[in-house]
Computed example of a mutant assay.
Amino acid sequence: MGGDISKDGVEKAYARWAPIYDFVFGKVFEAGRNAAIEAAGRACPQGGRLLEVGVGTGISLPSYPSNIRIVGVDLSEPMLRKAHERVVTQKLSHVETLSVMDAQRMAVPDHSFDVIVAQYVITAVPDPEATLDEFARVLKPGGEIILVNHIGAESGLRRVFEACFAPLARRLGWRPEFPFARLANWAARHGGMRIVERRPLPPLGHFAMIRFARTEAEPKAA
């Protein structure tokens, strides 16, 4: 299922986006960003550790509850430089560390985080299922994975448009025709993960927040 987007292509795409990312996408992605931050707060009402995968320029970091300790990772070093600047200038003491990492192969111990947030990431990685496996590996039993992403249309004109737009979108670093079934099938195959929410988001429901909960039991080996 992977292979149509390359790691090198994603790195190059986001290096180009880094200087203007917040200006171009900050408002467009605001509703999804706010929904993910609110869901993370509800998942960790007493505080905890949160991993934001694809933290980018760190635009979300100031808005997380201060009792949640945050680790941010991203494949793009130019994007992370912006995030580091934000942490320093805004004195974000709840941010533990920011690191360059491949989401599919993270240098993070098993069961390290109470919540994992990935905004606009899962359609921009070469192998979404392997990336979700990695999220599950580092998630504590009882924890949540919170995704915000474009979900491809299942029928109609939007599906036709997404199929036509796909070649250009891949050059920009993402795939627009990603179906929800891939997420549902991954959860069913993985075991110990279940979808607890699928919420359409503005604009016009083109984006969605999907929350996965891990059972309290010890996760089974992949």
Rank of each mutant, 00 (worst) to 15 (best):
H94R: 04
L98K: 03
V138G: 03
F113T: 01
V108G: 02
E129D: 06
D102S: 00
V95G: 05
K140D: 00
Q119S: 08
R105W: 11
H94Q: 08
R137L: 03
V117Y: 01
P141K: 03
H111R: 10
V138F: 11
A124N: 12
A118L: 14
D127Q: 10
H111Q: 15
R105F: 15
L132T: 13
V121S: 04
R137P: 10
S112C: 06
V108Y: 07
M106Q: 04
E96R: 11
V100P: 00
E134C: 12
S112H: 07
V121C: 10
I122W: 09
T131S: 11
I122A: 05
R137G: 10
P109L: 09
D127N: 14
R105K: 12
V117S: 01
R137D: 04
D133V: 11
D114K: 02
V121I: 15
V138K: 09
A136M: 04
F135D: 00
V121M: 12
I116Q: 00
E96P: 03
H111M: 15
V95F: 11
V138I: 13
D133W: 05
Y120C: 02
H94I: 03
S99V: 10
S99T: 11
Q119F: 11
P109F: 07
H94A: 00
V95S: 03
D114S: 04
Q104N: 13
